[in-house]
């Protein structure tokens, strides 16, 4: 702690004027300590309050449905039946698809930027990719509706022709679909995987690289056999962070997933996700049970993302010493 070992001395000469209230406040170590401590503690308090509010407000639904809430696929607000299975399914499928596309691309790009690219090119491209992280999800969704979906309409017939023997690629395609949501999500997680993975790769000590090169390894062999294994934990951490983000992503998914509560085997079929159903129905949810069912969905989402996030932070912390993304 910088300077914490130094104690302040009262430097006033004896008999000096008593200090004004303002001076005493400004120089009051204890007040400053207390004030900043309270602000720091507020983070912990907000988090506790968040968990409590979610838990308390989901009470009616938890008592009514119990664990059946998670496995029932009956979502009928009019009849007062609430089951989360279609939303959990949609969330998991779109996220799996996003990871399948995003992880290889992201890790590949991180390796290129950290190890293989010339420094000038690398810093320029890194700058661009970090800007991509700043694009709001509602704008990615806008492009999803008007760009990704039209492109998919043209490509899906070929996909069906080539892979149509699998149930994943069968059935009619209307545009809005689990497939579109997965693709849009993969674009959103790319910058996170790239920027964190790149940083943990850059943190690998230079001797590791030099030793590999001295043994006659090519640049790629050095990267793949020495640098990447060394940074493995951090890279996995970045993937976990992306996973958590993708599970909780709301707007972009809501705009392209089709918002149909069903469990369909085909990626071409419309679906729904936990975040999307909350976004669409919460403001209009009438009745305590309906609302608490939606809050319980929020609680499920919160639990999932927190568990993954907590693990990811520890992994990233253990390799790079930095935990913030």
């Amino acid at each position: 702690m910088p300077g914490s070992a130094i104690t302040a001395v009262d430097a006033r000469p004896p008999g000096a004027m008593p200090r004004s209230l303002f001076q005493r406040l400004v120089s009051g170590d204890r007040i400053a300590y207390l004030l900043t401590f309270l602000c720091a503690a507020s983070v912990v308090l907000v988090t506790i309050a968040l968990v409590w509010e979610l838990y308390a407000n989901s009470g009616p639904s938890r008592r009514q449905f119990g664990l059946k809430f998670l496995v029932s696929s009956d979502w009928d607000p009019v009849a007062g039946q609430f089951g989360a299975a279609p939303f959990i399914y949609g969330t998991l499928v779109t996220t799996a698809l996003a990871m399948l596309i995003g992880v290889p691309l992201g890790v590949g790009a991180a390796i290129f930027l950290a190890e293989l690219a010339p420094p000038g090119i690398s810093s320029g491209l890194t700058f661009l990719i970090e800007l991509l992280a700043a694009v709001p999800s509602v704008i990615i969704g806008l492009l999803g509706i008007f760009v990704v979906i039209p492109i998919l309409r043209d490509t899906v017939p070929y996909l069906r022709g080539a892979l149509g023997w699998m149930p994943l690629f069968q059935g009619p395609f209307y545009g809005v679909s689990l497939l579109a949501a997965g693709i849009v999500l993969s674009i959103m997680i790319l910058p996170f995987i790239i920027s964190i993975s790149r940083e943990v790769i850059l943190a690998v000590p230079a001797d590791q690289r030099e030793a590999a090169l001295a043994l006659g390894a090519t640049r790629w062999e050095m990267t793949w056999d020495v640098v990447v294994p060394y940074a493995k934990k951090g890279i996995v951490g970045s993937i976990f962070l992306a996973l958590a983000r993708s599970l909780g992503e709301t707007m972009a998914v809501t705009m392209v997933v089709g918002n149909t509560p069903q469990i369909a085997a085909s990626l071409f079929a419309p679906g729904y996700s936990i975040a999307a159903v909350i976004a669409n129905e919460f403001a209009e949810a009438t009745g305590a049970l309906y609302q608490s069912a939606l809050v319980e969905l929020g609680l499920v989402l919160f639990g999932l993302t927190m568990a993954i996030n907590a693990a990811a932070r520890l992994l990233v912390l253990s390799t790079s010493g930095k935990g913030s993304a």
Partner: peptide
């Protein structure tokens, strides 16, 4: 860091 990772829709609730 955890609070930063809370999905924004949950923050809305």
């Amino acid at each position: 860091d955890l609070l930063n990772g809370v999905p924004s829709i949950v923050m809305g609730i």
